[in-house]
Amino acid sequence: MKSFLTLLAALLALCALGFLLGSYESDVYRKLLLWIALGLSFNFLFGISGQVAFSHFVFLGFGAYWVAISLVHWDLPLAVAIASGLLVAAVAAAMIAIPSTRLEGPYLALATLALGQLFLLGIASGRDLTGGDSGLGGYSLPPILGFTVKGPWYTACIVLMLGLTYVILDRLDRSSFGRACRAIRDNQTAAQAMGINAPRTKVIAFTITSVLASLAGIFYAFVDNLVAPGAFSLESMFILLFMVIVGGTGRQLGAIIGVVVLYMAPFFIEPLIGHYHFMAFGALVVILIIYKPNGLVSMFDPILKRRRMAALEKAQL
């Protein structure tokens, strides 16, 4: 109950912040929230399930393009566009996962990377359907139940989506399913000997996280009312991977910290060092993997542990 109230308070605060920001800050803020949602689902896929997959932005892009194309070309109602998008994403993710999760580390990485490149090539050569390199625009969020949702109210919708993503992943993480994912990541042979169906578990983890990425993509489509291939490039995928590593692989809080730090960093360091932030991220990742493999979040561990011990003592009294 206490954790539920904490979450509710956090979401309300995030919504409230949306009402205080100007239009430029609002745009930055919404994208930050979307990055956090992506970071959380990618952390489950990569950090908890242990699958080094570069396909996360494919599913983000899929969700965004699907909803945009549904509105522009197919004139579908919004609810139908969203529901069908998530359904198709789930089927596609499962179909991709069934052969590819059999692949080990580097092979999965390169297979999903190839998939991402093919996705971009497909969009670029999609002519009118996808708008090619310049992207697809000229649509806007249709009224929902008669209300036109815009400005901070749309930001609140994104916060809601982020909250949903967080709750789903947090509950999965704390369940026997999340534990099974970690066990497979740490030692697949031992996990299977303890009764865990490793291929099935990996496919489910891949599918759920990919659908969540597509959900974020659907919300992304109405941030600029434009979807263009540049947003789903390999560079973005690398940054997402780096965010999770920097924050703390395998921990929800770590993913949030990593996304916030790396997303905000360019705004602060660009005036100092110019356009070198991507290079700096690469160097930071090497340094952290070597000297702080548990990420920035591990700096808070002593505090968290002390609090847990205090709570334990209190409970025993």
Binding site: G105, P106, F242, F278, F281, G282, P293
Partner: peptide, 17 residues
């Protein structure tokens, strides 16, 4: 080995830049 692979992805970006 996967840790080396990830750290080399960091190197990849540094070299690219």
């Amino acid at each position: 080995p996967v840790a080396s692979m990830l750290s080399l992805l960091g190197v990849l970006i540094v070299l690219l830049e």
